[in-house]
Amino acid sequence: MHLTLHVWRQNGPDQSGQMVTYPARNLSPDMSVLEMLDHVNEQLIADGDEPIAFDHDCREGICGSCSMVVNGLPHGPQKASTTCQIFLRNFRDGDDIYIEPFRATAFPIMKDLMVDRSALDRIIQAGGYVSANTGGAPDGNALPIPQHTAEAAMDAAACIGCGACVAACKNASAMLFTAAKVSQLATLPQGEAERGERARRMIAQMDQEMFGGCTNQGACSAVCPKEIGLEWIAKLNREHIRSKLPQAT
């Protein structure tokens, strides 16, 4: 199959970019979007042109590296998938495909489709951990956790930190990401000790990173490759309010 690509090309962080059109010929419908870019890049390199820079790593939907917006949707037009899991059979022969980087002040563009998503790491560093003193490892089943609690925590922990929620949000808000990262720990007894402080610090870091505010649009959850639900944002808001209330000591 043949496609026409319109790809955002930008040389560096402080430079201006624009969409550049490339013909992509002789593609297989079984190629992923990333394999299509590899294919186009081989041609660009053969022609002596600069290949399109894009992030990728595991190519099996768990690393969250392949950050790009395909036809107006982060990762591309298939629910619960990362770009590497979207195959060309989702498009029709002769289609025009528009590929852009995630756009947010908090995600500066490094080159072409590559953005710096370290802001998400700094939110984790602000409180997305459980402090444990060293010593003998506790027995795995010493702390009873109901099955449904463990399942709920796992639902939140499914977040791979790809940043599609930020890319989809009209306000470039990181609420769904922060909600998942706060909640996966706040749901479990191990996270209880630092619960209030964690919510406060991670939210403060999120605001400091210049992400926008949540206005309950719902686009984040709709494009999330791991289908993190909006109920986690409600949970984050609860954690936030709870952390501001006086706590019994």
Binding site: H6, W8, M19, V69, N71, G72, L73, Y98, E100, R103, A104, T105, A106, A168, C169, K170, N171, A172, S173, M210, F211, G212, G213, T215, N216, Q217, G218, A219, S221, A222, V223
Partner: peptide
């Protein structure tokens, strides 16, 4: 809030699909 949200996304997408959002919310 609007001012801060504009600052968080200064450059719009060339192609944008407002998935899931409503006319009212936008």
């Amino acid at each position: 809030l609007k001012r801060q949200n504009r600052r968080a996304r200064p450059q719009n997408y060339v192609v944008n699909d407002p998935v899931e959002t409503t006319l009212a919310s936008r």
